[in-house]
C-alpha cells in the first residue's frame, strides 16, 4: 500500500501540492487524473522519492521514500518518465538491460541476462532488440522504456504519462500490457499511472486518485470516483460517462 499523509510540495512561492492525504491499494492499476497543472506528475515524482516533500510523508509498502537510500528505493519502485535531454544512443537490449542495474550494480549475472531476454520477449521487442532507441517510433520507444521498468522487478511501477503523443493503437497496446502485468498473480506488481485521457482511465484503472489545483479531489475505486458528477466538478466542464458497447467513454455532458 502507498500511504500519503499531509503531503505538501512547494515550488518557490506557490504550492504544487497542498496537504494531500490518500491511499493507493496494492494490486491493479491506479490512475492519477486531474486537469492540467493539478500536480499529477509532482505527486508521482514524490511517490518515486525524486521530490522531497516540504511537509507530510509518503510510505510505500511501509518505507518512507524520502528517507530511503537510493538503492533501496530502486528495489521498491521503477519509473517511466519523460526525459527532456538527448536520448542516449543505446540499443533496445542495452537500455532494457540497465533495468537490472539496481540488482547487479555493474556485475550482471546469467540470471540478469535471462530476465532481460524474457522482458524483451514479453514486450515483443525481439525484432527491435538491436536497433537504437533513438531510431524507434514513439510507441516503440515507450515499450522499450516500459520493458526497462518491468525488468527492474519492483513491486511498484510508476508511469508518468506513458501515453503522451501515442496514437490509439499504441495506447491500447500499452494499456493491455499494463493490465496483463497488474493481473499477473506470480509477479504481483502494482501500477500507478498518470493519465490525461479520461476514457482510458475509466476503462483501464481499478483505483483512481483525482487531483485539482494541487489538492486531493477524491480517491477510491474507479467505479465510484469516475462518475459524471465528480468528473464535471473536477474539470469544471460538463462531462458524462457513457457506455459504448463494451467500453466506457467520457464525453461532453449536456
Amino acid at each position: 500500500m502507498i500511504e500519503i499523509e499531509g503531503l505538501t510540495v512547494r515550488r518557490g512561492e506557490t504550492a504544487a501540492l497542498t496537504e494531500v492525504t490518500c491511499q493507493v491499494p496494492e494490486g491493479g492499476i491506479t490512475a492519477i487524473i486531474g486537469p492540467n497543472g493539478a500536480g499529477k506528475s509532482t505527486l508521482l515524482h514524490a511517490i518515486a522519492g525524486l521530490i522531497r516533500p516540504d511537509e507530510g510523508h509518503i510510505r510505500v509498502s511501509g518505507t518512507d521514500v524520502a528517507r530511503a537510500r537510493e538503492r533501496d528505493r530502486a528495489m521498491l519502485l521503477s519509473l517511466l518518465t519523460q526525459s527532456a535531454g538527448a536520448v542516449p544512443r543505446l540499443s533496445v537490449r542495452e537500455l532494457v538491460a540497465f533495468g537490472r542495474w539496481p540488482h547487479h550494480r555493474g556485475r550482471p549475472t546469467a540470471e540478469d541476462a535471462r530476465l532481460t531476454d524474457a522482458a524483451i520477449e514479453r514486450f515483443d521487442l525481439e525484432p527491435l532488440a538491436g536497433r537504437e532507441v533513438e531510431a524507434l517510433s514513439g510507441g516503440q520507444r515507450q515499450r522499450a522504456f516500459l520493458a526497462m521498468a518491468y525488468v527492474q522487478d519492483t513491486p511498484w511501477m510508476l508511469l508518468d504519462e506513458p501515453l503522451a503523443a501515442l496514437d490509439p493503437k499504441y495506447t491500447r497496446d500499452i494499456m493491455d500490457r499494463l493490465r496483463s502485468i497488474a493481473d499477473d498473480r506470480t509477479t504481483r506488481r502494482s501500477v500507478v499511472i498518470v493519465l490525461h485521457d479520461l476514457s482510458i482511465a475509466a476503462r483501464h484503472s481499478d483505483w483512481c486518485v483525482a487531483l485539482k489545483s494541487g489538492r486531493l479531489h477524491g480517491a477510491g475505486p474507479a467505479s465510484e470516483t469516475m462518475t459524471s458528477g465528480t468528473l464535471t466538478a473536477l474539470y469544471d466542464t460538463p462531462l458524462r460517462i457513457a457506455n459504448a458497447g463494451k467500453s466506457i467513454v467520457v464525453v461532453d455532458g449536456d
Binding site: 518515486a48 525524486l50 537510493e70 528505493r73 526525459s83 535531454g85 542516449p88 540497465f98
Partner: peptide, 14 residues
C-alpha cells in the same frame, strides 16, 4: 552511461 538517461532515471535505477 546511466547519467545520460537523465537525473530521474539515474535515481530511479538506484
Amino acid at each position: 552511461t546511466i547519467l545520460g538517461l537523465g537525473e530521474d532515471y539515474a535515481r530511479a535505477l538506484g
